[in-house]
Simulated assay, not measured.
Amino acid sequence: MSRLRLMSKAAGGRVAASFACRLVDPNQSGLGDSPDQISSASFHRYDFHDVYLVRRSELEVRAVLLGEPKNAVASDAGPPPSVPSSDLHRQFGELLRSQKGADVTFHVSGESVPAHRSVLATRSPVFMAQLYGHTKEASTSAPCMEVKDMEAEVFRAMLRFIYTDTAPELERSGWQVTAMAQHLLETMDRYGLERLKRMCEEKVSMDISVSNVTTTLALAEQHGCAKLKANCIEFILAAPKNLFALAATEGKEEKEEMKS
C-alpha cells in the first residue's frame, strides 16, 4: 500500500494531486515490468489517499486458491431478464369487462351497469360514503343504485377510468372526444375524481374555439376549473378578431332565441 498525505495548508482550502506508483523488484535492475498505478485525489490539510499494489503472481495464486464463486454467472450468459411492465390496469379492466364478482348495479339512462363496490369505494370518496357510509350496511345481495342526469356511455367511461386509471376516450381527436370530455367534466365533482377532472380540463382546453369558448368558460366557472377558465380568457384576448367573432356569434344566438 502506498499513501499520499497533504502536510501544508492548501491555498483555497483544497489541492488536487495526481501520482503514480510501481512495484520494484530489488533483485532486478531498473524499475521492473510492474505497471504504473496512477491515482488522483483532492485534499484538505492532513488528508491522505491510499493506493493498493499487489504483484501479478500473488493475484494468480489467490485466484487458484479461491476458485470460482458458486453463484458465478457465465460471462456469455447475456444481460439479466428485464422486469415485465405492470399490467395491473389491464387486469382490473378485465374485471370490469367480465363483471365477475360484481356486487352493485347502477341504473343509468335505462341501462344496467354492474360494478364492484370495493373498487369504487377505494377510488372515490363519494362512492365510499354512498356504499359504505354510516347509514349503509354491508349486504350479501347486490344493491341497485340509480344515477340521474348522466348518459350511460359517460358513466361507463368514468368506470373505466376508476378501474384502470386511463381514459382512452380522451386519447383521440375530434368534436366527439371534446364533447365526451365536457360531459365527464360535468360529472366529476359528483364523485371526487380529481385526476380525471384534470385530464378532461386539459382535453377541453386544446379545442377552444370561437363557437364554444362561451360555453366552455361557463363550464369552467361552474366547476372551478381555474386553468380552463384562464385558457378561455387568453383565447378571447389573444386577437381582436376573436372578440369580433365572439360578439357576432352571441348576436346571432340572441336573434335565433327571439325568433323561437
Rank of each mutant, 00 (worst) to 15 (best):
L6W: 11
K9Q: 00
A10L: 15
G12F: 12
S18T: 14
S18N: 10
F19D: 01
F19Q: 09
R22S: 03
L23E: 08
D25S: 13
D25H: 08
N27E: 03
S29Y: 06
G30L: 13
G30P: 03
G32K: 10
G32Q: 13
D33V: 00
D36P: 04
Q37L: 06
I38F: 08
F43P: 06
H44P: 05
H44M: 11
H44K: 14
R45K: 09
F48V: 03
L53G: 03
V54S: 11
R55I: 01
E58S: 09
E58I: 09
L59C: 13
V61F: 08
R62Q: 11
R62W: 00
R62D: 03
V64L: 14
L66M: 13
E68H: 11
A72E: 10
A72Y: 07
V73W: 05
S75Y: 02
S75L: 14
D76N: 14
D76A: 12
G78V: 07
P79Y: 05
P79V: 01
H89I: 01
H89Q: 10
H89S: 14
F92G: 05
G93N: 09
L95K: 04
L95D: 01
L96V: 03
G101H: 01
T105H: 12
E111F: 10
V113E: 07
P114V: 03
R117C: 07
S118Y: 04
S118T: 09
L120C: 04
T122P: 03
T122C: 15
R123K: 12
R123D: 04
S124P: 06
P125A: 08
P125V: 05
F127V: 01
F127T: 01
Q130W: 07
L131D: 04
G133E: 02
T135L: 12
P143W: 03
E146W: 04
E146H: 11
K148F: 07
K148E: 15
M150A: 12
E151T: 01
A152W: 01
F155S: 10
M158E: 05
M158I: 07
M158S: 05
L159R: 01
L159K: 06
L159P: 11
R160F: 11
R160Y: 13
F161S: 07
T164G: 08
D165W: 04
D165M: 03
P168M: 05
P168A: 02
E169R: 04
E171H: 04
G174A: 02
Q182W: 03
H183G: 02
L184K: 09
T187H: 15
M188C: 10
G192N: 12
L193N: 03
L196P: 07
R198M: 14
C200P: 09
C200A: 12
C200H: 02
M206W: 02
S209W: 02
V210T: 08
S211N: 08
S211V: 00
N212Q: 05
V213A: 09
V213D: 03
E221H: 13
Q222E: 13
G224Q: 06
G224L: 08
G224H: 08
K227F: 06
L228M: 15
K229C: 08
K229F: 10
N231Y: 02
F235P: 10
L237A: 15
A238E: 11
K241I: 00
F244H: 12
E250H: 12
G251V: 06
K252R: 15
K255D: 10
